[in-house]
Design a protein around this nucleic acid. Structure first.
Lengths: 241, 241
DNA sequence: GTCAATAAAATTGGATCCAATTTACAATTT
DNA sequence: AAATTGTAAATTGGATCCAATTTTATTGAC
């Protein structure tokens, strides 16, 4: 018979019909990530964080070599990234990091204005105190940090913690993709023109509206907040490009 | 030297530096679709049209055999369909056609209400007479046809011809995906309760508002139109499920 | 030297093979 | 008979190979 201790390690956790009564510090071997998803996550992060410039060729062989795998999982990752609009795949010509035009960026910000104001308005009546305190913590951290790489991440976490209670998962997914496509262009632009200070003041106002249960105000402030970031981005990119 | 007639067939059309002066009914061999995209298109159509029930397993071998290809392009297609929310892929367990819950369907309709009212409002000031006459043609065809399979397609074409002039490509892509996820549930429901007659009256009203350049009215009517379809769908699905 | 035609190298798409995992089912125990 | 274990079949994930295509280098003509 198999050793009982090792055997229990193989139980897939979380399956309701077979809950183990043994409390062990076990690793979830069954749900470990596939090669493709690892490559996908890494590439996605690198593109969103702006570590790969627009137009950078993504050679299957190179990437496969870096991850010590074959080209099959790489192709899978590139295909997914294309669907998300982060890379462009051309038959027999390979993949490149997808750039974005000014008017595309502007449109995506308009999309966010529409989405996020709607979602926060739906969220306010359902908002828990846990979400609010989490949002406040991210808000504080956002102001304190100097690392421009972290601003977008904390900004994202702050807003998301105010949106989650809406329960609108489809809307949140759409917002996520919109942020993925534009995040890398915002960071550099926040560092100039005291963008962080302005953003923080606006965050505080939005947070205040949420705590007071004023959904309409929270929505309006969110609209104005995103609209302001959009205008500043367009101004800077418009000159620089 | 290579035969000139055959050679021109192999010229990739649309390349400005080398336009052929021979007018031949030639197939674009250079830009022909990849195996993966053919499988993808077929599966996508089958799922959207409701030919494959929710939860139907999609075996790689079966599909590869049907298209006389290997499993590699099939995997690619299934991966893309998963990103679009049309199939669910579970590691080592295969893919199934993705179903949708009542509250997911409801949320997607709410998303559409937001998107489509915004887009049509942006479109009206830019709308060309060509778009309007195209919309009217689809509107007529929608009422005349008895084929329940065609209603959704014509409905889609009608609305899309009113949205295109907005130039909001990102928004239109988002609308497309939302329609892809819900289309198959609407057809069966339109056939009962004189849904087509009601929809047609509403289409005429929207078209009228567009022709009069009344963007705000067109947006409001679009909101009400989609909202009505959503409520009817939820009523029927809520009873049937 | 410049341009086109040709050949070689690089790169991707797809087929086939093997490994990892799940599923179905028979054998065993209680 | 129900539950558990062990085994074989089915299925998917990934590696390697070959074909199709593009890109780059080379040659030749003018």
């Amino acid at each position: 018979m198999m050793d009982a201790g090792i055997c229990t390690l193989w139980i897939t956790p979380g399956t309701p019909q077979m809950a183990s009564n043994l409390k062990l510090k076990s690793i979830d071997i069954g749900n470990r990530a596939s090669a493709g998803s690892i490559v996908y996550d890494s590439l996605r992060k690198a593109i969103i964080d702006g570590e790969l410039d627009d137009g950078t060729p993504l050679r299957q062989d190179d990437i496969a070599y870096q991850f010590n795998t074959s080209r099959i999982p790489v192709r899978e990752a590139l295909s997914k990234l294309e669907q998300e609009g982060l890379v462009i795949n051309r038959r027999y010509r390979g993949a490149v990091v997808a750039g974005i035009s000014l008017r595309e960026a502007s449109e995506i910000f308009d999309f966010r204005i529409l989405m996020e104001s709607e979602v926060i308005a739906a969220s306010v009546p359902k908002m828990t105190s846990a979400s609010l305190s989490k949002a406040r913590a991210y808000c504080d951290e956002f102001r304190r940090t100097d690392d421009s790489k972290k601003w977008s991440k904390l900004n994202r976490k702050f807003h998301y913690s105010l949106y989650r209670d809406s329960g609108l998962k489809y809307h949140l997914d759409m917002i996520d993709n919109a942020l993925d496509r534009t995040e890398r262009y915002v960071d550099t632009q926040l560092s100039i023109s005291h963008g962080v200070e302005k953003a923080h003041r606006e965050h505080l106002a939005i947070l205040d509206a949420c705590e007071n249960g004023n959904a309409e105000l929270a929505a309006r402030l969110t609209r104005e907040h995103i609209s302001g970031v959009r205008d500043e981005l367009l101004e800077h990119l418009g000159g620089g490009r």
